[in-house]
Amino acid sequence: MKYVDEFRDPKAAQALLKAIEGKVADLGATQENPVHIMEICGGHTHAIFRHGLDKLTPPGLEFIHGPGCPVCVLPMSRVDECIEIAERPEVIFTTFGDAMRVPGTKKSLIQAKADGADIRMVYSPLDALELARRNPDRKVVFFGLGFETTTPSTALAIQQASCEGLKNFSVFCNHITVPPPIKVLLDDPHMVLDGFVGPGHVSMVIGTKPYEFIPRDYGKPIVVAGFEPLDLLQSVLMVLVQLSEGRAEVENQYARIVPDEGNPVSIAAIEDVYEPRPTFEWRGLGEIDASGLRIRSKYRAFDAEEVFDIGYGAARRVVEEPEGCACGEVMTGRIKPMECPQFGKGCTPEMPLGALMVSSEGACAAYWQYGGARQGVD
């Protein structure tokens, strides 16, 4: 296949939907007792709703929306720490755009900018590096945020800053990894999951081997998927085929992009710059061992937590969720967004209460944007 239209071909989609319906029937699944498949990645959640796949698939199949949005799982305390750094007069604070409106306990980064903090949206950590070169009298901080997809670019920026001897550049590191929270979900006795659609962009970096514990230790299938409608439908079918055949394996539907061994250059940069944190807090999931990354001691001069004595290197602050906010339950698939008491009332895209309504990969934003989500709200 060469063109995107080929991944959206209606006849091919109809054939896949018919095959999915047959496998769901073979498994004896019904609307009252469906097959539960979790799409881990928030990009997949948006693709499912953008293309109406939730309405096209049979009622015996239920999509469970996982914690695959790095902005959404960031605890409010870390947003507060971003603002604390950004409001220092000597600081130029840089961040990707989707983190600008995520609320902390008192304000968001965009509100802090309106209050006078020098906060700038960038498209790459290289933009932050260039700001550091042009402003030697200011401390330029990059908000390092994301799963393994964005981790290599931040690592390469730190390596570059080290090579150049830049003294005024640092990273507030909030990079996190996908496999540990999946294990937490699988260990939760209240979660009912039959299989997984695995993240495509993350797997492009780390490959497929890090997911082998899922079938080996838990007997659940996982299929790494692309982001077009036919990618997702084929991946769901592959999960259902495994279930119907009594198999549990890691399969790679997105082989045109994802090598099983991952990207060796990216992996080498990650291993050089970062090490696992003993623990890291996830919104909705709590502290998860070895799920976050921190900057190694050899690059300590570029670690904003060290530079500003903040975060996990300082006293930790426990921040409670806003009253009525159910971000944690939504992110872990326990409830759907419209079951949150704040959805469409205290939490809207214009005035978000939780990160799931802000982020471009948030489940609440997907439900709001792609039809049917506002029923009972407007």
Rank of each mutant, 00 (worst) to 15 (best):
E6H: 10
D9V: 05
A13K: 06
L16T: 03
E21L: 00
E21G: 10
K23R: 13
N33T: 11
T45G: 12
C69F: 06
C72R: 00
M76K: 12
C82Q: 11
L109N: 04
R120M: 05
P125Q: 04
A128G: 13
N135M: 01
P136C: 04
D137Q: 09
F142G: 01
G144S: 12
T149W: 08
T150W: 02
T154V: 11
A157M: 01
S162W: 06
F172G: 02
N174G: 11
L186W: 06
D187Q: 13
D187R: 10
G195W: 04
P199R: 04
Y211E: 04
F213H: 07
P215L: 03
D217E: 15
Y218R: 09
G226M: 07
V239I: 02
V258L: 07
P259T: 14
P259W: 07
V265I: 15
A268Y: 10
D272I: 11
L285C: 07
S291V: 11
K298T: 15
R300Y: 14
R300E: 15
V307E: 04
G311I: 04
R316H: 14
V319P: 08
C325L: 11
E350K: 15
A355G: 10
V358T: 14
S360C: 12
E361W: 08
E361F: 08
A363S: 12
A363C: 10
